[in-house]
Amino acid sequence: MLDRGYDREFAESIFAQIQGFGEYGFPESHAASFALLVYASCWLKCHEPAAFLCAMLNSQPMGFYSPSQLVQDAKRHKVRVLPIDVTISNWDSFLEGDGSMASVRLGMSLIRGMRDESAARIEAARAVRPFESVNDLANRARLDRRDLQLLADANALSALSGNGREALWQAVAAVPDKDLLRATTRDEELPVLAAPNEAQEIVSDYRSTGLTLNRHPLALLRERLSEKKIFAASKLATYPNGRLAKACGIVTVRQRPGTAKGVLFITLEDETGQINVIVWPSLVEKFRKEALGASLLGVYGVWQKEGEVKHLVANRLVDMTALLGNLATSSRNFH
């Protein structure tokens, strides 16, 4: 640059800018490759949302988004999601139906603790002829007590046994006998057990698969939250910039990038969508237990909105996990 007549001071300022960019900038080839992946993903999510969901579920574990988040988002975008069913489901999730009306049938891979070899035996036995009962399933697929209890907990036996409690009872009774007694059958009357209520089903769903096809847990708490002037994400989205706001949701993601100078970004999820929360470093230290430990987090702060970019800048954090009762949730934490 000096040979071309530029001043040394100007040349050094240009090199300093290039050096600064080099600390975080991507090479052009990497940026172009990433942009292509983002474009293709966005196109699929917009035009083929069922296929997009199916592919994302079958690629787990991955990235920021858990199966629960993916399913909740798909349901909000009118994708029909069908439950795990031992008479239909495979190991992987798959599309059921044709064209734009296709539904997503959840796969047995989503059941926590389920073994792929057990699922393979179920698929092989089912291909010969449909299962007639839980006993038939247990014997022909050679399932043990653990397999059957996992399927019952996931409500995957409902087509053969009724509600979840009846399925669990039959699963325990259906464990195949060994040796000489294997070919025998039990002649006993099955008890009629009351079906679990919605809250109990949701707790069981999250414990078994980490997601639910019932209502979102926050829908059951909405009346109580509304009494505290804590409103849903869909209502907050209509707020003008600068308005005081209260939010509450299940913590799905915590991010604290090294380049953010201590700022913590939290994503909350309720029955209507997601809320992006910004927590300044001083507030993280003041509410450290709530920020890093709460499963259900209440946030009091100021709503910021610029175009389509919307987030809640926190002034106060409240751990509201107790409202979830026995519901076990998890978040993706990136620090």
Rank of each mutant, 00 (worst) to 15 (best):
D7Y: 11
E9A: 15
F10P: 07
F15A: 12
Q17S: 11
I18N: 10
Q19I: 06
Q19F: 10
F21C: 04
F21W: 05
E23M: 04
E23I: 01
G25K: 11
H30E: 13
A31Q: 13
A31C: 12
A35E: 14
A35Q: 12
S41G: 15
C46V: 06
A51Y: 07
C54E: 12
M56G: 02
M62T: 13
G63Q: 06
F64K: 07
Y65I: 12
S66F: 05
P67T: 03
K75L: 10
H77L: 09
K78A: 14
L82G: 02
P83F: 00
D85S: 14
D85C: 11
N90C: 06
S93I: 03
L95G: 06
G97N: 04
G97R: 03
V104R: 03
L106P: 00
M108K: 02
M108G: 04
I111G: 03
M114L: 14
R115L: 13
R115Y: 10
S118N: 09
A120G: 08
E123P: 02
R126C: 07
F131H: 04
F131T: 01
A138K: 06
L143E: 01
D144I: 03
R146C: 01
L148I: 02
Q149D: 07
A154Q: 04
N155Q: 10
G162C: 05
G164F: 05
R165E: 12
Q170C: 09
A171Y: 04
D177S: 12
D179K: 13
R182M: 05
E188P: 01
E188H: 10
L190G: 11
V192Q: 13
A199E: 10
Y206I: 00
S208T: 00
L213F: 03
R215G: 08
R215I: 01
L221Y: 08
E223C: 07
R224F: 04
E227R: 12
K228N: 09
K229A: 11
A233C: 15
A237C: 06
T238H: 10
L244H: 14
G249R: 04
G249C: 06
I250D: 02
I250P: 01
T252E: 03
R254L: 03
R256I: 06
P257H: 07
T272Y: 04
W280Y: 02
P281Y: 08
P281W: 05
L283A: 02
V284H: 00
E285I: 06
K286Y: 00
F287H: 11
F287N: 03
E290W: 08
L292N: 02
L292Y: 06
S295E: 13
S295N: 15
S295D: 13
L296W: 02
Y300R: 09
Y300I: 09
E306Y: 05
V309K: 15
V309F: 13
K310S: 12
A314Y: 03
N315L: 14
V318F: 10
V318Y: 09
A322S: 12
A322P: 03
L323N: 03
L323M: 08
G325S: 05
L327G: 07
L327V: 10
S330V: 06
S331L: 15
